[in-house]
Simulated scan of single mutants.
Amino acid sequence: MLKNTARSIRTRATAGLVTAAALTVALAGCGQDSTSPEEARGQAVGKTTAKGSGGGSHSPVDCATVKCIALTFDAGPGPHTPQLLDILKEKKVHATFFLLGKRHVDTYPEIVRRAAAEGHEIANHTWTHQRLDQLKPDEIRSELDRTQQAVKALTGREPTLMRPPQGRTNNDVKAVTEELGLSQVLWSATAKDYDTTDSALIQKRILDQAGRDGIILLHDIYDGTVPAVPGIIDELRKRGYTFVTVPQLLAPGTPRPGTLYRP
């Protein structure tokens, strides 16, 4: 039954995500100015590290002096997410989860609660993974607010971060996210794990792209992704990286609603 459920989720998710195969970070968020983690920190020198929206606070990390990188997962939760949470707990890593609402948050509420309770940052990836830059403002608002309210009902907190599907955004998205108190977060490293089940290849793609102040994009709904995570963590730690959530990466800056953050 679990295999059938996982296969069904992959099929639905692939339909919404496969067009991202041609997407590059250079194209993502085109037409909008973006703020880097370094710039976010510089705008708030002297402030203390902020708490995230994941349900817990973490020890302050000064990413101005420490070699930081953020691990993020899109389009879950799903059947593989508990295994991922076990790995992250064992490795003592906190990640940022950009969750889908329909067939994910509403299907796996106990996993959402667990991720929040274990101190991970819970963020918004819309309700149905539609490209927001192709929607009207009211439709954008519905896509985001439905997930906001679903997460709040489970964790007691609304997310403060969102990731637009395929990284596609525009001024309407900026206006609605500002209204809803959401910051936009893109990425610097992606494994394109929607087109392979080869965990070794997923690991190599991430390690080849990893850099200081980076934001790693993975999807915990695909078969090859979660098995790649331990190797990614271990190798990056050997290279001197400290894993942080996205709010920690920006601290002492606080994510500003509507702002587009990209390494």
Rank of each mutant, 00 (worst) to 15 (best):
E143S: 02
T155D: 07
A123K: 05
E38C: 14
A20F: 12
P159R: 01
A153D: 11
D193W: 05
T24H: 12
T190H: 04
W127V: 03
P60V: 03
P165S: 09
K136V: 02
G42T: 11
D106N: 14
I9E: 13
K89E: 03
R262D: 03
H125R: 13
P77G: 09
G101A: 13
G231R: 11
L84Y: 01
D172Y: 04
T169C: 14
H58E: 09
D213A: 04
E178T: 11
S8F: 09
T48F: 03
P79C: 13
Q130R: 15
C63P: 00
S34L: 12
T72L: 00
Q149I: 15
G31V: 12
D145Q: 13
T96L: 05
T72N: 07
L71R: 02
T196G: 08
M162W: 05
G76L: 09
V226T: 12
V173G: 06
A21P: 00
Y241G: 04
Q32V: 13
A6M: 11
Y241E: 08
G16W: 14
R256P: 11
I140A: 05
R131D: 15
A26G: 15
A50M: 05
K51V: 03
K238F: 07
T96I: 04
N4S: 14
A153P: 07
D86Y: 04
A70C: 02
T24M: 10
T245E: 00
P165Q: 07
W187L: 07
P77M: 12
L236T: 03
I232Y: 02
D133E: 10
G258A: 11
T5E: 15
A44L: 09
P137V: 03
G214M: 00
P60H: 03
M1Q: 15
R157S: 06
C68I: 00
V66L: 08
E139T: 02
R10N: 03
Y261R: 06
A210P: 03
A150V: 11
L135K: 07
F73E: 10
A150R: 05
E158W: 04
I233A: 06
H104M: 15
T147S: 11
H120C: 07
R212H: 11
E110D: 14
I202H: 05
N4H: 12
K204Q: 12
N171Y: 10
H125V: 08
T48N: 11
I9G: 06
G101V: 10
G52R: 01
S36V: 15
P263G: 01
L250M: 06
P165E: 07
G16R: 15
K174I: 12
H125Q: 13
G253Y: 02
P77R: 08
V246A: 00
R168D: 14
G55Y: 01
R146K: 15
E178I: 07
T190G: 02
D198C: 08
A26V: 10
